[in-house]
Design a protein around this nucleic acid. Structure first.
Length: 939
RNA sequence: GCCCCUGUAGCUCAAUGGUCAGAGCGGGCGCCUUAUAAGCGCCUGAUCCUGGUUCGAUUCCAGGCAGGGGCACCA
């Protein structure tokens, strides 16, 4: 007889093979059609008049190019967090956004247009930029959605929208009203290629070859310290082109300077600590020291400029070091920040005779039109001719480059709008302390950055951005920022967007009859600069959190560590400057994505991995599982090998769920659920482990520790379920009568566990959990989608936990089981036994171990729990060849041999009762009874 | 140059001032053929290096090394 047909094997439509790449997009489409995200929001919003429970405010990615694995990591982490809050029953809306202005987009648009920017109407270029940005918003929206990231994708925030721009202008206006905005002439990083000022954040350092020259400044007046005739101060510089702008020479007040005579000839002043190096570089042979002074004593000595008919005094500055050069620093306040600062103290002119293309202006007729770098050559020649060039070499050093066009940048003094950080630095530092930073070192990092940072240069000399809302009086030339002018600009932007700045005259924008508050003039012109994009995104807390009623401040900002100098900081500054508070309660930072070898990913290294390709190859759920598996607080690695491993774990989780679902095919919880008293000890152990899983997973979620969730779930599926429980209950599930109590007891456990497990993994495996949910017994599907459901509770069904003594007994049983398997393995190596079912286990216990024996046997039939033929206890010493295992204080001897019992062909157990039934002589008694019940006629 | 972070098996992660540093994946060897492009078992393997504190350090301290990130300078 074919007993195969009399057992209940698992059946389910939930496929083993996920085919995620194919099926995920279909599920996405279904969610979209059902408006599932919107449904979730509506459901949770109900009964919450005061706004959301939890708001993660999205840092806007730049709308340029496709998403990469780092942005994917960021968005997936955000999605985890938002979904966890939703699964806790909260209302946690997520409004994604994009940063849409700025130079990179402007450059890309220009490149696509392929035209000379000079010939272009700003409005045309802006239109092109807008199209470009919106195009990539679309691209990235698709890509983020493909990752399974939920949010209000239909209404994201974009920094180029009229409402946003208007709000941003108001933030600027508020900062101005508080006196934090000023216009200054200050050296800023300037990219001559892009023709704009650059923020510090837009600078990167690369190696650059520069001239390295020593220049003599003849002493004209030594203030009586020494004979000036034939004496000179030597400076060293790598930027000869800044020499025309030289206004002084800086010495360190505390360093010692010596005047040396070289051979019979000239005398030079250098720092003593640099003399040896200078001597070597300049090839001096014999030097004679003629005098020595502290830098402070030399202040006020006057030298002659080596190129021009002007003087250059010796001044003092703490920034002078002995690391390089001569200890006498060429100072050009128009071309260096420290020079500028020391120059302020001495009232030096801020002189920067370069135009926006980095070429010399008419102020320096001899070099007019020459780009700075090219002027070097001419200047060197002139120095040579004047006999001032003592040495010319070359030096490779790291030098500031434009992060976009990769060209070397200049320091150039120009008129710029600034936000004065000093004015609210203390408040910003206080705000930093009020924020919860995770990891905790974030607080220190932000504090250091705020403490040390200079004023924020907000001006950009470009067109693609929000105009700086300032007017100038034509009569007195004073800049005007008044509440009413700000309001007028904000109104205009709200109606027409910031294009209105370009389409309207100042008179059309300003209120009727507006007069210059300084001189009463009535003719005005508009500022030409636009705002730094960091100001755009930095204003999002006002334009999004506030204007969309999400609540202020946000509960959480979550970005990569790079945003300490970016969005975390710009948001903090604008928030503190306008409201005196940080815009976030908590800031969570994640690390970088590195390749499998722990190296940073670079397109040039060819070690990048595209998140979309991962989706196509493995599926978004596997990518998400990779994110979950990684400890993101430091840098995370990704490689094909790593993804392959994660994919294996995915399959394991999926298959475990599938097996459970398959065994619930005929389970109706309403009718079949077995109450606790009816469960076997093993079932209660399984539920206990499940409860522990729920606790651990939910607490890991609370701490945003997704890697703990990953390992807990993996270990539960593999060790507790696959490695023990499921293996053991197969016999009950398959072979007991379909309606047997013991079978339904196992099904009760599976039902409880799988319905909970699916919900526990729902924030991570969004597609798989949703799919599995559809295959649950009807009654478990309390919501149409798992994503509308909530986590299983640990507080429900209290009392399911095992008592400590019982748990300890299980630990001992599992230890014993392991020892038995070791013994079986050895016997198998000796060819004594095959499968474990054909093994008889003999356990030898000391007479005083009766309690241990009882506690083990109370847990169930050990033969069933070990999946062996039988387990027999013996009192007394074990045979010499038996293995020994220590359980607590007691030692147990373990011996295995081939069983004498025949195998039951139905349940495949070598059961002691096999052959005892008259009607079915080949079956064990249990199976005989089951089969008999199927054929009541008794064939 | 300075600062921060990280360093536990081949990989992803645990743990602890103190039994043998745990698990999964991988790898090796088997079993099963009733989760089957599955399942089960056994085995394998690690605290970056050097000092110090301590009875005892993977953990605390110092210094290195490696990787990542940041800041600054580059006159």
């Amino acid at each position: 007889m074919d007993y195969q047909k009399t057992v209940q094997l698992p059946t389910t439509d939930f496929p083993m093979r996920a085919q995620l790449a194919k099926r995920e997009p279909q599920r996405l489409e279904a969610w979209r059609e059902q408006r599932l995200y919107q449904k979730l929001q509506e459901q949770r919003r109900a009964a919450r008049p005061d706004g959301p429970d939890f708001v993660l405010h999205d840092g806007p990615p730049y709308a340029n190019g496709h998403i990469h694995i780092g942005t994917a990591l960021n968005k997936i982490l955000k999605d985890f967090i938002v979904r966890v809050h939703a699964m806790e029953g909260e209302w946690a809306p997520y409004v994604p956004g994009w940063d849409t202005h700025g130079l990179p987009i402007e450059r890309a648009a220009l490149l696509e247009l392929g035209v000379d920017p000079e010939s272009l109407d700003p409005l045309e270029l802006r239109q092109k930029c807008r199209e470009y940005a919106l195009r990539f918003v679309e691209v990235q929206r698709e890509e983020f959605e493909r990752l399974g990231v939920w949010g209000d994708w239909e209404h994201p925030y974009l920094t180029l929208t009229p409402e946003y721009e208007a709000r941003q202008v108001e933030v600027f206006g508020e900062m101005a009203r508080r006196g934090y905005i000023y216009k200054g002439l200050k050296p800023v990083y300037w990219c001559p290629e892009c023709r704009t000022a650059l923020a510090e954040a837009e600078i990167e350092y690369q190696d650059h070859r520069s001239p390295s020259i020593y220049v003599a400044f003849p002493v004209e007046d030594a203030r009586g310290l020494f004979e000036p005739e034939g004496a000179a101060v030597i400076i060293w510089t790598t930027t000869p082109w800044t020499l025309p702008a030289n206004k002084a020479i800086a010495l360190h007040p505390d360093l010692e300077y010596v005047l040396v005579r070289v051979g019979e000839g000239a005398r030079y002043l250098v720092a003593r600590g640099r003399l040896e190096e200078v001597q070597k570089d300049l090839g001096w042979e014999a030097v004679t020291e003629e005098g020595a002074w502290r830098g402070a004593e030399l202040e006020g000595i006057v030298t002659r400029h080596p190129l021009k008919d002007q003087t250059s005094p010796l001044i003092l500055g703490e920034h002078v070091t002995l690391e390089q050069g001569t200890g006498a620093v060429h100072t050009a306040p128009g071309h260096g920040l420290e020079d500028y600062e020391v120059g302020l103290r001495y009232g030096l002119e801020v002189y920067a005779p370069l135009d926006e293309r980095g070429r010399f202006t008419g102020e320096e007729p001899r070099y007019q039109g020459l780009p700075a770098q090219e002027a070097n050559e001419r200047i060197l020649a002139d120095l040579q001719a004047a006999g001032r060039l003592l040495h010319a070499g070359q030096l490779v050093h790291s030098y500031a480059h434009c992060w976009r066009c990769k060209n070397p940048v200049l320091y150039r003094a120009t008129p710029q709008w600034f936000a004065s950080i000093d004015a609210f630095r203390e408040a910003a530092l206080a705000a930093v302390d009020g924020v919860q930073w995770v990891p905790a070192w974030g607080a220190e990092r932000m504090r250091e950055m705020v403490k040390d940072r200079q004023d924020w240069c907000i001006s950009r000399q470009r067109v693609w951005g929000v105009p700086i809302p300032v007017f100038y009086c034509e009569a007195c030339q004073e800049p005007i920022i008044e509440p009413e002018t700000i309001a007028a600009v904000a109104d205009l932007f709200r109606k027409e967007g910031s294009d209105g700045w370009f389409t309207h005259e100042a008179s059309e924008i300003l209120p009727e009859g507006f007069r210059c508050p300084h001189c009463g003039g009535d003719a005005f012109r508009k500022e030409q600069d636009i705002m730094d994009v960091w100001f755009d995104s930095g204003a999002s807390h006002a334009a999004v959190l506030e204007d969309r009623g999400l609540g202020w401040p946000a509960d959480l900002y979550l970005e990569g560590g790079d945003q300490f100098r970016g969005w975390f900081q710009s948001s903090l500054l604008t928030a503190v400057a306008t409201r005196g508070q940080a815009p976030y309660r908590k800031v969570l930072t994640h690390g970088w994505v590195l390749d499998g070898e722990g190296r940073a990913m670079h397109k040039s290294l060819g070690n990048t991995i595209s998140p979309l390709e991962v989706c196509d190859k493995y599926g978004a759920d596997v990518l998400r599982l990779w994110v979950a598996a990684s400890d993101y607080q430091s840098d995370v690695r990704v490689s094909d090998a790593i993804l392959e491993q994660v994919a294996d774990v995915y399959r394991r989780i999926r298959n475990t769920i599938r097996f459970m679902l398959g065994n619930l095919a005929d389970f109706d919880p309403a009718r079949h659920r077995v109450p606790r008293e009816g469960l076997e000890p093993l079932d209660r152990w399984a539920l206990h482990r499940y409860r522990r899983l729920v606790e651990r997973v939910r607490s890991a979620y609370q701490e945003d520790a997704f890697h703990l969730v990953y390992h807990a779930v993996n270990s539960f599926c593999t060790v507790e379920m696959g490695g023990f429980y499921l293996d053991v209950v197969k016999d009950r599930l398959y072979c007991e009568a379909a309606d047997a109590r013991s079978r339904q007891a196992a099904q009760t456990v599976l039902y409880e566990v799988v319905s909970g497990l699916i919900r526990l993994i729902a924030p991570i495996l969004v597609f798989t959990a949703d799919e599995a949910w559809e295959h649950l017994p009807e009654q478990a599907r309390t919501q149409p989608s798992v994503h509308l459901a909530t986590f299983p509770g640990v507080e429900e069904e209290a009392g399911l936990e095992l008592e400590a003594g019982e748990e300890a007994a299980w630990d001992q049983l599992l230890n014993l089981r392991h020892a038995v398997y070791q013994a079986i393995e050895e016997a198998r190596d000796r060819r004594e036994v095959g499968g474990s079912r054909e093994v008889s286990v003999e356990l030898y216990l000391a007479p005083e171990a009766g309690e241990l024996k009882a506690s083990l046997e109370a847990l169930g039939d050990l033969a069933e729990l070990f999946l062996v033929s039988e387990v027999r206890f013996h009192e007394g010493p074990a045979p010499a060849e038996a293995a020994a295992i220590r359980l607590g204080q007691l030692e147990v001897g373990v011996q295995v041999r081939k069983t004498a019992h025949a195998r039951c062909p139905r349940c495949r157990r070598n059961h002691p009762t096999t052959g005892q039934d008259q009607r079915f002589p080949e079956l064990c008694l249990r199976c005989a009874a089951v089969v008999a019940s199927l054929e009541p006629a008794g064939s």
